[in-house]
């Protein structure tokens, strides 16, 4: 094998990778935040909601979890625009990622919410807390603490999956790489660099979620035990 690796493109193209990574961070932080919100509401409906509300949420979760993100992105971007709803690639990317993330988060948060015993709700009721107060203070926080490892893995998976939005040329890291690749013809090297950037991002995200967990879950911070 006489292949000569050539990473010289990095000398003047490295800012592109940094910019691309930053775009990916923006895209995914927004999608994670919104997806978590969608998933939490849907999970609450799945556990406590009326039957007529539970059914559509169940259909949503199953449809999304059993079809590829790539096809979901195509439907949002190409499909909706053919129906007259023209969305930019970035907006389409966020919508697809949020819808996707929401379905997975629903299942994770549902498990967390179901782990909160009914007696906790009764205790809150007897103390005079309203339903909303009970959900926020007695249900959601401990539920989230219980499933936080699964939740943060899902967040990292979403960050990695966001690379798929490059297929509709949404501006993010992989799309940037595709661009550099077509300029330099050093495909293998470019994707090695990009792989390393994603690897770094995934460690960064894990560290970030660990920090957020420390701030959010004071009990865990102090005792270090699982709830």
């Amino acid at each position: 094998m006489s292949y000569q690796f050539d990473f010289s493109f990095l000398a003047d193209r490295w800012p592109d990778f940094v910019a691309g990574a930053w775009l990916t961070v923006q895209l995914t932080v927004v999608s994670i935040a919104l997806g978590l919100a969608v998933g939490t509401v849907c999970a609450l409906i799945r556990v406590y909601g009326a039957r007529w509300m539970k059914a559509p949420v169940g259909v949503y979760v199953e449809l999304i979890r059993n079809t590829p993100l790539l096809v979901q992105i195509f439907i949002v971007y190409f499909g909706l625009s053919s129906l007259g709803l023209k969305l930019s690639a970035e907006v389409s990317a966020v919508i697809a990622l949020v819808v996707n993330m929401g379905a997975y988060t629903t299942e994770i948060m549902r498990a967390g919410i179901q782990s909160i015993q009914r007696t906790q709700l009764e205790a809150a009721d007897c103390l005079g807390l309203t339903r909303l107060q009970t959900i926020v203070h007695v249900v959601l926080l401990p539920a989230m603490e219980r499933v936080y490892p699964a939740l943060s893995s899902q967040f990292v998976l979403l960050m990695l999956a966001s690379s798929i939005t490059s297929q509709i040329s949404a501006e993010e890291l992989t799309a940037t790489a595709n661009l550099v690749q077509s300029d330099t013809y050093r495909s293998f090297e470019v994707y090695i660099v990009v792989a390393l950037v994603y690897l770094a991002l995934s460690f960064l995200y894990r560290f970030g979620f660990w920090l957020i967990g420390l701030v959010l879950f004071a009990r865990k911070r102090k005792l270090g035990t699982a709830l």
Binding site: L160, A161, S163, S187, A195, Y198, S202
Partner: peptide, 11 residues
Amino acid sequence: QGTPLLIILFL
């Protein structure tokens, strides 16, 4: 697990 499948495919 820290690399997107898409990038693994390209590689």
